[in-house]
Design a binder for these strands. Structure first.
Lengths: 383, 383
DNA sequence: TCACGCATAGAAAGCGCTTTCCATCGCGAG
DNA sequence: CTCGCGATGGAAAGCGCTTTCTATGCGTGA
C-alpha cells in the first residue's frame, strides 16, 4: 500500500505524533529529530493523506472558485487572479489547493458545486458569475451560502452584488426543510436555531463592480460625441448585471433629455452570436442608429461583424462600444471603446479577502470603480 | 456542531451503516427504510463529510485538471471541455468535483499541484500545458506521474506528447531517493521494488495534437500561394510544441526547396506582446518578407499590429497565419488563416479517458489531426 | 544533594465515514 | 411443524491523521 505516517515514524524511529508535528511545524521538535523525520519522509516519498488530515483537523486546504465559464476571458482573467492570490502564489508555504469550478452559468450547477465544496469542507469559496434575480434561486443560494458560512467557510462574492441580507438567515429554515413534521422535528429545530445564531461563522463578503456608473459614463461619452439614436444590446434578462448596466445607460439618456425608445434595446446572451443577431435586429427596427452600446466586448465584436455585413463602417457610420475591456479589445479593428473593469484587482482582492489576508470592510462590500477607455470604435456621428 | 451520519441515523431510527448504504445506494435497503433515511437527511440538511468518506473509502470524488493559464483562451477552452466531461455534465448522478489548477506555466507549480492532487487522493488528473524538454523536469514530472498512477489515479496528458517511456519507471527510484542510506533502507527498497511493479496502476494516457502536420500544411499553403520569404515567430524554446511546429514548418520549406534562413525565425512567448516584438525584429532583419507564420493566434494578433505600424497591410503586403483557431480568430480583421486544433474534442476525450468512460487505445495515445482553415489574412504575395 | 520545572516525545483517543462480518426476521420446503 | 435460506439491518473495526494528555530526561536553585 501507500506509505503512511506510521511508516515514516517507524523509519525515523519516532512516534507518529512526532512526524505529524514536524510536518505541520506547530510544535517544538528537536533539530536532530526533525532532520531524521524529514529524511525518512524524503526516502519514503511520503505524501500525506489529505482526506485523513482534513478529517482529523476538521478543515481542508481546499479553496474553491466558482465561475460561469473558464473559456470566457472575463471569467478566465478573474479566476486567474483569484487563484494566484488564493494559492499563495507559491510564496508562502501554506499550500492551498485553489480550484476553479465551471458552473456553465447554470444556477443548479452553482448550487451543486457549492454543496460539493461544502462537502469537501473547503476553507474558502469565491463566487463569481451572473447573479439571477429569480427570487427562488437567490433564496436557495443564500441558504447554501449561509450553511457554508456556518461551517466556517469564508464566502466572497466577486463581480456580483451582495446577497440580500434577509435571505441569508431566512431562507435556510423555511425553504429547505419542507417536511418539518415528525417526532424529533420540534426538538431538532429548537436546538438548531440558537446554534445557528452562534455558529454564523464568517459573514459573506462582496467585491462588486460599478456597472451602473460604467454604463452611464459610456453612454454619456456617446452623447457627448453627438449621438442621439443609440441602440443597446443588453445582456440576458433577469441578471442583476444586465439590469445595472441598462439602468446606467438609461440614466445617461435621461440626464440629457434623450427619449429611451424601447425598440432600441435588445436582450441577448453574453456572446458573440447574440451580438451579431441583436445588431441585425436593431438595424431592422431602425436603419438610422448612429451608435450601439453592447453588453460586453465579446458582444460588441458580434455587433461589429453584423454592421460590416450591412455595409456600415465602424466608427464612420456607426459607433460601437463594449464593456469589460477584455484583453482582445485593444486588438480588435477598430480597437474597442469600452469600460474597463478592474478584473485583476477584483480577483486579487476577493482572493485575499477569502484567505483573510486583507481586513474586511465594515459593511462587507468593496465597490470597485470602472474606467472609460476611449479607443477607435467610437466617433462623432455622420463623420 | 455539524450534522453527522449518526445524527441522521438517530433521526431516522436506523443505524449509521444503513444511512451510508442509502446514500451510496450500493446495497439493498427496503423502500420504507430508504424513505425514512432520505427524509431525515433532508430535514437535517445533512451534507456528508467528504474527507471522512474519502478516508474510509480510500478514494475521493475529486478530479483535477492542470492548465498553464485559465485566462488564455487555448487553455480556457480545453479546461472547459475537460471539465464538463469529467464532472458528468450534470447528467449522471455520480457527482465529481472537477477542479482546474493554474500552473502559470511554471514547472514547479505543476509538480506542486500534482503532489497536492495526489495528497487529496484525486481519482483522475488531466495534465495539459506546455511540456518542457528539460530532462530534469521531465524526469521529475514522470516520477510524480508514476506515483499518482501507483496510487490508482488515472493520469491523462492532453495537448502534449506522451511521457518518455523509460522515465516513468526509472526516474522515481534514482532521482527521488538520494539519501538511500540508513538501517531500514535496504529492507524498505527491497519491499518497495516488487510492489511498485505490481502497484503500477493505470498507465498514463495521452491525447496529442498533430502540431507538426498542422504547421507543415500551413506553410505549404503559404508556399502554394507563391510565398518564398516566410518569417516564423516560433514559441518559447525548449517546449516540445514549439519544436514540433517548427519542424513542420521546416519540413514544408525543405519539400519545396526553399532555403531555411536562420534569421527568419524568432522565438518568443505565446502572447501578443511577443508577437509584436518578434515581428518588429523580423522586419528589421529582412524588410522583404511576404509572409509570417506565428506561434499561435494570439501571437499572430501581435504580429498584425506590428505590421500595421510599419505601414504594411495584411494580407496585401504581408500574409499572416496563426495556429490553434481560437474563438477570436474568426473575428479578427482580417480573419485569421490558421490551423484548427480540435480543442473541444481533445478536452472531451481526455476527460472521458480519465473517467474510464472511453476505452484506452492500445498504445495509450490518441493523436488528433488538425485542419487548415483558410481565411482572409493570407493571400498571394505582391497582390 | 534533592526537588522542581522545562523541553521533548509518546500513547491514545477520536474525527465521520465505509464495509465486513453477523444477527435477525419471515418465509417456503420437507 | 421445524429447518434453512434470502433479504435486511446492526455492530464494530478500522481508514490515516491530529491533538490532548502524560511521561521522561535534563538542568537548576535551595
Amino acid at each position: 500500500m501507500t506509505v503512511t505516517l506510521a511508516d515514516v515514524a517507524a523509519r525515523a524511529g519516532v512516534s507518529a505524533a512526532t512526524v505529524s508535528r514536524v510536518l505541520n511545524s506547530n510544535y517544538p521538535v528537536a533539530e536532530a529529530t526533525r532532520d531524521r523525520v524529514l529524511r525518512a519522509v524524503a526516502e519514503l516519498e511520503y505524501v500525506a493523506n489529505g482526506p485523513a488530515s482534513a478529517l482529523a483537523a476538521a478543515t481542508s486546504d481546499l479553496v474553491g472558485i466558482l465561475v460561469n465559464d473558464v473559456a470566457d476571458p472575463f471569467f478566465g482573467v478573474l479566476a486567474s487572479a483569484v487563484q494566484s492570490e488564493m494559492s499563495g502564489d507559491g510564496t508562502s508555504g501554506g499550500e492551498k489547493l485553489a480550484v476553479v469550478c465551471n458552473t456553465g452559468g447554470s444556477p443548479e450547477r452553482e448550487l451543486t458545486y457549492l454543496t460539493l465544496l461544502h462537502r469537501q469542507r473547503a476553507g474558502a469559496v469565491v463566487l463569481t458569475g451572473g447573479a439571477t434575480e429569480d427570487p427562488a434561486h437567490t433564496a436557495a443560494l443564500a441558504a447554501r451560502v449561509a450553511r457554508l458560512s456556518a461551517a466556517g467557510t469564508q464566502v466572497v462574492l466577486c463581480g456580483r452584488p451582495p446577497l440580500p441580507a434577509g435571505a441569508t438567515a431566512g431562507a435556510g429554515g423555511s425553504a429547505e426543510a419542507p417536511v418539518a413534521g415528525g417526532r424529533a422535528a420540534g426538538a431538532a429545530s429548537a436546538a438548531a436555531s440558537p446554534a445557528s445564531a452562534a455558529d454564523a461563522g464568517p459573514a459573506p463578503l462582496t467585491v462588486a463592480f460599478d456597472n451602473r456608473g460604467g454604463a452611464r459614463s459610456l453612454t454619456e461619452h456617446l452623447v457627448a460625441l453627438g449621438h442621439r439614436r443609440i441602440g443597446c444590446v443588453a445582456g440576458p434578462e433577469g441578471l442583476t448585471t444586465t439590469r445595472h448596466r441598462l439602468e446606467g445607460h438609461r440614466a445617461a439618456l435621461a440626464t440629457h433629455g434623450i427619449e429611451d425608445v424601447p425598440g432600441r434595446t435588445v436582450h441577448g446572451a453574453y456572446d458573440r452570436a447574440s451580438g451579431y443577431a441583436a445588431a441585425h435586429e436593431l438595424l431592422r427596427r431602425d436603419e438610422d442608429l448612429t451608435a450601439v452600446v453592447a453588453a460586453n466586448d465579446t458582444v460588441a465584436l458580434g455587433v461589429c461583424a453584423a454592421l460590416r455585413e450591412h455595409g456600415l463602417r465602424v466608427p464612420e457610420d456607426v459607433s460601437v462600444a463594449g464593456f469589460d475591456d477584455l484583453p482582445f479589445s485593444m486588438d480588435a479593428v477598430p480597437a474597442l471603446t469600452t469600460v474597463r473593469l478592474p478584473l485583476t484587482e477584483a480577483g486579487a482582492r476577493a482572493g485575499r479577502l477569502a484567505m483573510g489576508r486583507e481586513p474586511a470592510p465594515a459593511d462587507g462590500v468593496v465597490l470597485l470603480s470602472s474606467e472609460l477607455v476611449i479607443r477607435k470604435s467610437t466617433a462623432p456621428p455622420y463623420s
